[in-house]
């Protein structure tokens, strides 16, 4: 099967049919939920405190629903209108924005207590229009994200890089934007359970460790 980001830009790939398929597939949903839970854990927010969070590529609101359950206040953005429609139908509590993250954010400095992103940033690497340079878009994205996060805080991205080159491009763009942190790989030795998280940090912090040993179900 081709990777979705190789077929078409996200706003095209996640048209009405795909958006519906995506949200009705319970296996995808449960994997998404697991990854969101892990991303939240890696975010390491202060316990019992409501946070103001950004969900980057919030899609149909599945991760947002989990943020609602935790009582957080959040803003979600996505480039696919049909996914946002599904999020509206889900009646999530967050504010939803139609936004191309490669164009950067306009949020004021220090706005968010943290950010999560599930299966999204690999999309920034494909140039769908000739005017889109992936490097420029990555830089614009990370620079404006860094500015919009408070110090200290984290942004956690689960992503599916297709090569080590991609990982390098993404991490070096993040570093240039001022982020610390690095990759966290869960179950690195399992072909099925292996998951990659980019844990970016504003301010000096220690990088958490990946999970090992017994795999998740």
């Amino acid at each position: 099967m081709s990777r979705p980001e190789e077929i078409a830009p996200p706003e095209v790939f996640y048209g009405d049919t795909e958006a519906t398929k995506y949200t009705q597939n319970t296996r995808i949903q449960s994997i998404q939920a697991q990854m969101t839970a892990r991303a939240l854990e890696l975010l390491a927010l202060p316990e019992d405190e409501v946070a103001f969070l950004l969900d980057i590529g919030c899609g149909s609101g599945l991760s947002g629903e989990m943020l609602d359950e935790e009582g957080h206040i959040w803003v979600g953005c996505d480039i696919a209108p049909s996914m946002l429609e599904v999020a509206l139908e889900r009646e999530v509590e967050g504010d939803l924005f139609l936004h191309d993250i490669g164009q950067g954010f306009g949020f004021r400095p220090g706005t968010f207590d943290g950010a999560i992103s599930i299966s999204v940033i690999q999309w920034l690497l494909n140039a769908d229009a000739t005017s889109h340079s992936p490097t420029q878009r990555l830089t614009r994205f990370f620079t404006t994200l860094h500015a919009s996060l408070r110090n200290p805080s984290r942004a956690v991205f689960q992503f599916y890089p297709s090569s080590d080159d991609q990982v390098h491009m993404i991490t070096s763009a993040a570093q240039r934007a001022g982020f610390g942190g690095g990759l966290v790989v869960d179950y690195p030795n399992s072909r099925k359970a292996r998951k990659m998280y980019l844990v970016l940090m504003v301010g000096s912090q220690e990088v958490p460790k990946g999970l090992d040993g017994e795999e998740m179900a």
Binding site: I79, L84, L88, L96, F97, L98, H99, D100, Q103, G106
Partner: peptide
């Protein structure tokens, strides 16, 4: 429909 269009 409650969603601002931030596309440039």
């Amino acid at each position: 429909n409650g969603i601002p269009n931030m596309l440039l």
